[in-house]
């Protein structure tokens, strides 16, 4: 690998790491829950990019499918149920 390519990859790594930390900080502030959940999905996708850089393509595939996709769907449906409870249309909890 030429030094030029190594420097470019280093710049990419730095950008990726700073983006990850910034997204994590923003989503953990918890000002707006919907925004936090959407940022969490974006965080999962960025994380799978980091796994590729760490030479772990299997983990990247699992993270993109499970960590970002399914966890995001779970969080969104839980948020939707919370909101419906808050709006009061749903009185009796089914149990």
């Amino acid at each position: 690998m030429s030094p030029w390519q190594a420097g470019l990859l280093l710049a990419f790594d730095l950008t990726l790491v700073l983006t990850l930390l910034g997204v994590a900080w923003q989503l953990l502030r918890g000002v707006n829950l919907f925004r936090s959940v959407v940022l969490f999905i974006a965080f999962g996708l960025l994380l799978s990019l980091a796994w590729v850089r760490l030479q772990a393509p299997d983990v990247a595939l699992a993270e993109a499918a499970i960590g970002a996709g399914v966890t995001g769907a779970l969080l969104l449906v839980a948020l939707g149920r919370l909101r419906r409870m808050a709006s009061g249309r749903h009185g009796g909890e089914g149990s």
Binding site: P57, D58, L61, A62, A65, I66, G69, V70, A73
Partner: peptide, 13 residues
Amino acid sequence: TGGAFQGGAVLGA
């Protein structure tokens, strides 16, 4: 690269 968890996650999605 691939495996049961990745495939299962695609099916789940």
